[in-house]
């Protein structure tokens, strides 16, 4: 019966409005009131440092390969001690979709997400972050991890001096 249904349909919205009229509002009065975000909220990306204070990023290009929108570009270089680092690292937040795939790909835990979402602006160029804008002075979430101590490359320790390694072999030794 269409008539009955129409009458019912006219009253139901009023009932919904009435029901919610006396509830506590959920609107957050941003920016006067700061929102409480979950710990693992994915917003602005940072480049962290290892416990020794050196840059964690080894410019392995895995983040740029994982990025579905191609917003990361970088160039690797070699320091005098053999450390691989990013000569430049550019992240275009105007393009970033904050999916966090780069942080999952990062083998050195260098690139990490923060909960800082306040990136809006009028100039898109200001959203193109360079390495100095991304690099922070702390270890981020995993404060103890140092990639070079685990890898078997003589950068933080002499060759064969990392945990789980034996000293370099004497290749001219013929003893059994």
């Amino acid at each position: 019966m269409p008539l009955l249904r129409d009458i019912k349909g006219s009253f139901q919205p009023f009932w919904v409005t009435l029901r919610n009229m006396f509830r506590k509002p959920v609107t957050v009065q941003y920016p006067e009131q700061r929102p409480e975000l979950p710990e693992r909220y994915r917003a602005r990306l940072i480049l962290t440092r290892d416990p020794d204070g050196a840059e964690r990023c080894v410019a392995c290009y895995l983040c740029s390969a994982a990025c579905p929108v191609d917003c990361i570009s970088l160039q690797a270089a070699e320091a005098e001690d053999g450390r691989r680092y990013a000569a430049w690292f550019r992240l275009n937040f105007a393009r970033c979709i904050f999916c966090g795939l780069c942080t999952e790909a990062c083998p050195t835990l260098a690139i990490q997400v923060t909960a800082d979402f306040e990136l809006a602006g009028r100039d898109p160029l200001k959203l193109v972050y360079e390495k100095e804008d991304l690099l922070v002075d702390h270890c981020g979430r995993q404060p103890d991890y140092n990639f070079y101590r685990q890898t078997g490359i003589g950068v933080t320790a002499p060759r064969g001096g990392n945990p789980g390694e034996s000293p370099p072999v004497d290749v001219k030794d013929l003893l059994p």
Binding site: G152, R159, E165, S166, P167, P168, V169
Partner: peptide
Amino acid sequence: GEKRTYNNQQLGPFIAQEMN
């Protein structure tokens, strides 16, 4: 067990060696 390591050689301007 522990991982074996080597010392590398300088093989000139073209080739880099990482024997590990």
